[in-house]
Design a protein around this nucleic acid. Structure first.
Length: 702
DNA sequence: GAGCACTGC
């Protein structure tokens, strides 16, 4: 098929003048059959193998080595292995490799364990939150970057166990990775023996090297090594004219790819599946409705050969799983799958069998506004790096194609990379971590991108209001205690307050619930009659737990019910409760209580009355979230009361406060979203007594 | 008539 023959609804497809999304690699590159070759042979076939000597030489002679390795070049598995075989684990030293995601740390450790020929957790292991598979003798440890950062904060500021720290996927520029890079730069001033390897998929290598070079003496300058990937070529096609409706264009492009294939003698069997990138879960659902409607009405024959699947993180687990299971009954591939996905498929998960990618060119990103203290999700054009990553998803199986729903000129004007998280986020947590690491002057801490003054001072002001730092921005005892919790500062403050109110078990449960996705299974889908009944059933089930103050005490009620009754999966679903979420909440709560135990006696409210229980839980909540208060005005609506800019806010109709609460004069909330009709929508809302504000946050509310 | 990227400790 020739893609340039397709006429889009709003424009024409034309092949890119720069042809391929892939760098350097040859389109006739051999396809390795990894499933049948013995392990040792597989390792020798990896592109990284050619660079083994160069890598070992560089690590020996340079303090910092930047490796530019494309997807599947073998860097994450092989480099630690090479280093171990060459003495970098002698004298009790260990090699640590950081990953942004848990699943990556776990699977990499498992893969390298197989190569080394031991069981997981002996020579090779991993540590992620709630899961530690290492032993005293472990030489190579895969961890999430957050774990290594906390290890430095809590126990070992110089990371003295490690001879080499390898920071993988550094180009993603997560907050944790950035903090870690800054910390490693600082450690190298004291530990010249430490070796740092930074891995990145983009050509940004020089920026990483420059970052470290600024502090290094001439003795130890870093070096860059580039390793080719094992990807197939992906042809990139652009629109001739911009589209006016990306959703419709996505659906029409996907369907026309299928129509063209069905005229091809190879038919649909010759082609892999189609992956479409859209900015939101809502768009994903809408695209599927649209696509189903088009094929049902226009092309019923094609409809029999297609399956439309959604993929986004809020989707229930079993729905997500459908994307990764190739249906047994369909092993001869009579049906072609069209997967509509958010950014989750860009890096977090790999959808199998994709040969075509359709890229809307859009992404939804959070931006924190220090002036309003709200984080907002905004749809923005994705970056060139992101577009390249999306295109690459088509080239894992065989040569593929990527349709970009914008013009080539538009692509050339896009940002090179997505703005790093450090420039977009609330920095209070980041600053508290640095303070705990002994960084007194935050402005003097070296990061790849320095956040704006507004953003830094907002972070400092919040920490001051929480009592974590003093007038001279020095860490207080309370701040030091707060920094030890794996939670954001407001939640850490709330946990510590629970010791004083003697309700730690309940408050830790509420804090855990705030971090895990919704406890309740809200009804969705189905016919309108059935749906109405479901809604009624849902409301009556919730009523059993609902407290008139709102969401937080209701969570405490559910969790305490679970402690007493140990509801199983079935009973949970009858009561519209998410069993997996509740299990997760207990796990998080128990971890929080273990941290809390260092600072005081853990108590539970036991036989306290409903009123007493409500009061102490909400006071603890107020001690952390006093920034987020709104007052009922004469017009019957809530407005924030901080500063001079009073913003209209309305409790989400899905909140317990909305369904079961009273018209309290003052409310407190933990989360905001842009509302559909202006103003902000609130999640996790409770009624509070305004006197608590002066009592618990005097320097903020006086 | 609800509902809103994705991680991580």
């Amino acid at each position: 098929m020739s893609a340039s023959t397709y006429t889009g609804n709003d424009g024409f497809w034309k092949p890119s003048s720069t042809t391929s999304a892939r760098n350097k690699t040859d389109s006739n590159a051999p396809v390795f059959n990894f499933s049948s070759a013995p392990l040792a042979q597989q390792r020798l076939l990896l592109p990284i193998h050619k660079h083994k000597r160069q890598i070992l030489y560089s690590v020996e002679n340079f303090g910092v080595v930047v490796i530019v390795g494309e997807t599947a070049c073998g860097k994450s598995t092989q480099i630690p292995h090479y280093l171990m075989s060459n003495g970098w684990c002698d004298n009790g030293f260990q090699i640590v490799c950081t990953q942004p995601r848990r699943i990556a740390a776990q699977t990499l450790a498992a893969r390298v364990t197989k190569e080394v020929g031991r069981t997981l957790g002996t020579t090779v292991g991993y540590t992620v939150r709630f899961d530690n598979k290492t032993s005293e003798n472990t030489k190579i440890i895969y961890v999430t970057d957050g774990i290594l950062l906390r290890e430095a904060t809590l126990t070992d500021p110089l990371l003295s166990r490690y001879s080499v720290v390898m920071v993988d996927e550094a180009h993603e520029r997560n907050l944790n990775t950035d903090a870690l890079l800054g910390l490693l730069k600082k450690i190298r001033r004291k530990r010249q023996d430490l070796r740092i390897i930074v891995c990145s998929a983009t050509i940004d290598a020089q920026a990483f090297l420059d970052f470290f070079n600024a502090a290094e003496t001439t003795l130890n300058i870093g070096t860059i090594i580039s390793v080719d990937g094992r990807q197939h070529a992906v042809d990139v096609l652009y629109l001739d004219k911009p589209t006016s409706n990306y959703l419709r264009s996505t659906v029409e492009t996907a369907l026309s790819i299928c129509k063209l294939s069905s005229k091809n003698p190879k038919g649909v069997n010759g082609e892999g599946d189609i992956l479409c990138f859209l900015p939101s879960g809502e768009d994903v659902d809408e695209a599927i409705r649209m696509a189903q409607e088009v094929v049902d009405s226009q092309d019923p024959t094609l409809a029999n050969h297609l399956v439309f699947l959604p993929l986004y993180s809020k989707l229930p687990f079993n729905m997500q799983a459908r994307v990764f299971q190739i249906d047994e009954r369909d092993k001869h591939k009579t049906k072609r799958r069209i997967i509509f996905s958010t950014n989750i498929a860009e890096t977090s998960v790999t959808v199998p069998r994709i040969t075509h990618v359709i890229d809307s060119g859009l992404v939804k990103l959070p931006y924190f506004d220090p002036k309003t203290d709200f984080e907002r999700l905004i749809v923005v054009p994705s970056s060139q790096a992101s577009a390249k990553q999306r295109a690459g998803r088509a080239g894992r199986l065989q040569a593929g194609q990527c349709y970009r729903l914008y013009t080539e000129n538009f692509f050339l004007k896009l940002e090179k990379a997505t703005p790093p998280e450090i420039l977009r986020t609330n920095l209070s947590s980041f600053i508290l971590t640095l303070k705990a690491l002994g960084v007194d002057n935050i402005l003097g801490f070296d990061v790849m991108d320095l956040p704006g003054v507004d953003s830094l001072s907002h972070g400092l002001e919040s920490l001051y209001a929480l009592g974590a730092i003093d007038d001279d921005t020095n860490l207080t005892v309370l701040g030091m205690d707060m920094s030890s919790f794996p939670t954001e500062p407001r939640v850490s403050r709330m946990l510590l307050e629970s010791l004083r109110e003697e309700c730690s078990v309940e408050v830790a449960g509420v804090c855990a619930a705030l971090q895990v996705r919704s406890l309740f299974l809200t009804p969705r889908g189905g016919s309108s009659a059935g749906r109405q009944q479901q809604q009624l059933d849902y409301e009556s089930a919730i009523s059993e737990f609902a407290d008139s103050s709102g969401d937080h005490v209701t969570y405490a009620n559910v969790i305490s019910h679970q402690d007493d009754r140990r509801m199983d999966r079935e009973e949970c679903s009858e009561r519209f409760l998410d069993y997996v979420a509740i299990r997760r909440i207990s796990e998080v709560r128990d971890q929080l209580l273990r941290f809390l135990k260092k600072f005081g006696r853990i108590r539970s409210l036991g036989m306290a009355t409903v009123d007493e229980k409500r009061k102490v839980i909400l006071k603890c909540l107020t001690s952390g979230f006093f920034f987020n208060v709104a007052k009922l005005h004469n017009d019957g609506k809530y407005y924030t009361i901080r500063g001079t800019n009073h913003i209209l806010v309305s409790p989400s109709s899905s909140s317990i406060f909305h369904t079961h609460g009273s018209h309290a004069e003052y409310i407190i909330f933990c989360e905001t979203h842009d509302g559909s009709r202006g103003g902000m929508e609130l999640k996790n809302v409770s009624a509070i007594d305004p006197r608590w504000l002066r009592e618990l946050a005097p320097h903020y509310w006086n």
